[in-house]
Each structure stands twice: as structure tokens, then as C-alpha cells.
């Protein structure tokens, strides 16, 4: 390959903590990799596992799911519910061969702009090393060829 591989990363974040943390990284002019696309949700409790599957279908090589630290959820409990879901869904994805390194979870508060920037950088670097998630994306190509029949 001539050019280095640039992974596509989709982040599902809650608006009260991680989205605000990402805003803080911006207002503090921290620099990080441009590979991430952020989808804003009211709360991690709203982040359905379906979103992760759809992001993978759309060519994501990595997915980040992030919200408020335990105890800090604006909605009091949303992140606790999310954590249970993530525990189960992550195990399920790992068992079906979707590498754990590609689907990451974090707590990033509205004050942790630096943590957000660092995480995006390290995540991008990790996924870059792993390479494109061709195994999954090939499933998608199959549909596209099939649909031409």
C-alpha cells in the first residue's frame, strides 16, 4: 500500500458528558485525528446496539461508545443501564469474531476534553494498526453485488 490506511471511526456519545467533552477539546484547541464522526444522543441509555452494527455496515473500522462517568449521568441511571448492555453486547460481538479492539467504550466527562482528544488519537492509531475491517465490509460488498442481479 502506498498511502497509510486511514480508518473510519464512528463515535456514539451522550450530549451531556462526552459530547460536551469533545466540545471542550475544541474550545481548548486540542488537536486530534480527523477520523472520528460523532453521533450525538441524549444519553448513553439511548445508544442501541443496533447503532454499532449499522456503523460497521457503513464501513466503520472502529466504533467508540462513550458517556458520563458512573454516578454522573444527567439522567441519573442511563449510563448504568448502558454499561450492562455494553457488557453483554461486547461479549457477543467478541464471540462472533468482531474484535474487541474495534469496539471501544469509555467514560468521558464534560471536563475531560484532553481525555477525549487522547482517546481519539490512540484509538485511531490502534485501528490503523489493525487495518481495515475487511472481513465485515466484505459482507456488505456481497449485498451490493447480489443486488445487481
Amino acid at each position: 500500500m502506498s498511502e497509510p490506511f486511514e480508518p473510519k471511526i464512528v463515535a456514539f456519545v451522550c450530549t451531556y458528558c462526552t459530547y460536551a467533552g469533545a466540545d471542550l477539546a475544541g474550545t481548548s484547541r486540542m488537536k486530534y485525528a480527523s477520523n472520528v464522526r460523532i453521533v450525538r444522543l441524549p444519553c448513553t441509555g439511548r445508544i442501541s446496539p443496533m447503532f454499532i452494527l449499522k456503523a460497521l455496515q457503513k464501513g466503520a473500522d472502529g466504533v467508540l461508545v462513550s458517556g458520563c462517568h458512573p454516578g454522573d449521568c444527567h439522567f441519573a441511571q442511563g449510563n448504568y443501564h448502558a454499561r450492562r448492555r455494553w457488557t453483554v453486547f461486547r461479549a457477543l460481538l467478541a464471540f462472533t469474531g468482531i474484535p474487541e479492539q474495534r469496539i471501544r467504550f469509555s467514560w468521558i466527562s464534560a471536563a475531560e476534553g484532553a481525555k477525549f482528544a487522547e482517546l481519539i488519537n490512540s484509538l485511531t492509531e490502534d485501528i490503523r494498526k489493525l487495518g481495515p475491517f475487511e472481513q465485515y465490509h466484505e459482507l456488505q460488498t456481497v449485498i451490493e453485488t447480489q443486488s445487481t442481479y
Partner: peptide
């Protein structure tokens, strides 16, 4: 309060959140 925790729980996708619908 609009957190949407119920939406992601619902297996039959029978509950939705205005402003952040499925």
C-alpha cells in the same frame, strides 16, 4: 425526561424518543 433508556431496551422497537427517533 427524555433519556431514551427505554428505547434501547425495547426488543420490538415499540418505543421511540422524539427528537432522537430510530
Amino acid at each position: 425526561q427524555g433519556c431514551g433508556t427505554c428505547v434501547s431496551f425495547c426488543r420490538s422497537n415499540s418505543i421511540d424518543l422524539a427528537g432522537f427517533t430510530e
